[in-house]
Amino acid sequence: MAETQSYRREVTVKSEHGLHIRPCTVLAQSAMKFQSRIHLNKPGMQVDAKSILDLMTLAAAPGAVLELEVDGPDAAEAIEHLAALFDSGFAPTPAEAKPSAAVSVG
């Protein structure tokens, strides 16, 4: 079994409307590319970052501070990637366009 790493980092919601459906879509799509278990924490609440539904129940407003928690073989890479997404305010980048195309099968 691959070596497990754990990382935690504080992230700030910078997207204009907070964690609305689109940022959640981008985040969940990105999280799913990693094997690690990825959670977002806020006081009294933990959600699965690979679930768009869970992410939305955070109802995180712009400026909200959340904790990103990643455990797994590719945790180091995952936390950098996802933190960068938060920093960019979830602007879709060419790198994000790819997994979304892979999802839209059919």
């Binding site: 959640c24 969940a28 768009i52």
Partner: peptide, 14 residues
């Protein structure tokens, strides 16, 4: 984009 969000919801693993 609205539909890709719907697609993500429908495929939500959880």
């Amino acid at each position: 984009a609205i539909f890709s969000a719907h697609l993500m919801l429908a495929r939500d693993e959880k």
